[in-house]
Design a protein around this nucleic acid. Sequence first.
DNA 1: CTGTTATGCGTAGACCATACGCAGAAATAG
DNA 2: CTATTTCTGCGTATGGTCTACGCATAACAG
Lengths: 253, 253
Amino acid sequence: MAAKTDDSGPVIPPAIESAWGLRERPPKGPRPGMSVPAIVDAAVRVADADGLAAVSMSRVAKELGAATMALYRYVGSKDELLMLMVDAGYGPSPGPPPPDHEWRAGLTRWAWAEHEVLRHRSWLLHVPISGPPITPQQLGWMEDGLRCLDGTTLAESEKMSVLLLITGYIRNEATLTAQVAEGSRAAGVAPSEMMPAYGRMVARLIEPDRFPALHRVLTSGVLSQNDDPDDEFTFGLDRILDGIEALIQRRAG
Amino acid sequence: MAAKTDDSGPVIPPAIESAWGLRERPPKGPRPGMSVPAIVDAAVRVADADGLAAVSMSRVAKELGAATMALYRYVGSKDELLMLMVDAGYGPSPGPPPPDHEWRAGLTRWAWAEHEVLRHRSWLLHVPISGPPITPQQLGWMEDGLRCLDGTTLAESEKMSVLLLITGYIRNEATLTAQVAEGSRAAGVAPSEMMPAYGRMVARLIEPDRFPALHRVLTSGVLSQNDDPDDEFTFGLDRILDGIEALIQRRAG
DNA sequence: CTGTTATGCGTAGACCATACGCAGAAATAG
DNA sequence: CTATTTCTGCGTATGGTCTACGCATAACAG
């Protein structure tokens, strides 16, 4: 029932060990013709070019000029490969805040960095994540986020919760933005026409008596004007940071 | 390049029309042996029992004692079926707030209702959503959420952003909770031992010098004590509502 | 040189969604 | 009553997925 817990502690998936550089090549046998990083790079290249759905083991193998099954000597499963792709896809964190930092500015910078990554690599949002972060880069991001909160009065558990809150918001906002972009491409509509078209469709489906508040939003023309998506992001982020600020001040006062 | 926009406006997917009860049966031909709601119910039953991954067209058909291809007379694709499953899975919204409502209490109730649904039906989180809500129940939830903000000083666009913010948070929190539960089942570890095991694994992977803030969190024992997951949810929700409150007061004052 | 061990990879199995086309049932038109 | 139309149910088939298994071979240890 308990996981294997000998002197080496709980089980670490092989892919994770290799990501942390803890795997040593056995001295016997033929030289490997590929490497885990090369495979991950190829997979990321495929995802960048044609989306996550195009990432199949055969497609990645073709990218490398190798046979499909050859990959399974390096990664245990497709899920492992996906985990490594996420790690590589995020890339290194934006770095720690400057020494005399103010937490709000630091977290804002941190948030925009993740926002930027997700805008550039929207396939990261489609990877079904299966647990808390354990890969090097991911923990690097977390480390730098925690450092932003170093000078505050928050408890350690609260710092963690705050980061979770912000990361979740960023992912969610990016998901919605990517969906609009994706939908506009699929329907052959200009991105700027997407939300207006959505508004018109909803207007045709609902009856004003049963959906008065929604009707009011529609007639207010909110969806017709297409504002800078960055404004939407800034709005939510500022709300969250306001909420955190309120807590910090309550703790301090 | 523009979508079809005759007198009936933009294209509405057949599945959506049927969900709104806008489809009429043609007068000729044999009676249908099934119905869209029956199919959706069966699919939801499968997802409730064995998870979203078990929902295949053949599995759903088997559940109904029908042939696989028979389903395609009723739904255009598996994606359409998924959309209808989401609508049915959420169920009716918790209803509008009471007449003399206070916005914060109303939104809290609304948030907990969605939280409850997602806790009970975690497969909803695994459905790859492909656009803004257009199904009846989904818009019903949105309507009731908007009504909670009726008496406030917020602009219509801000109300929308606020709802998006809260829904996103709820989904994100539910996703993380479900992942922990899922992981504990997969690894055969008790759920209460999951976060401690994670903490120990991270502690073994990182070097304290390179990850000082993270190391501090680990040694603080945050992950070792397993607190009520509802507390975590409440924490984030309160931070967000605090942020919204700050905005409302700024608008009012 | 011999034994051990890891690699590359071909084969094959078990799934999956779904395009297509045919037999037949139901309702209408004459 | 008969012919026609139109839709339903569903069998077949295609092309895709992941991956378990096993064999030949290459490289090193002694």
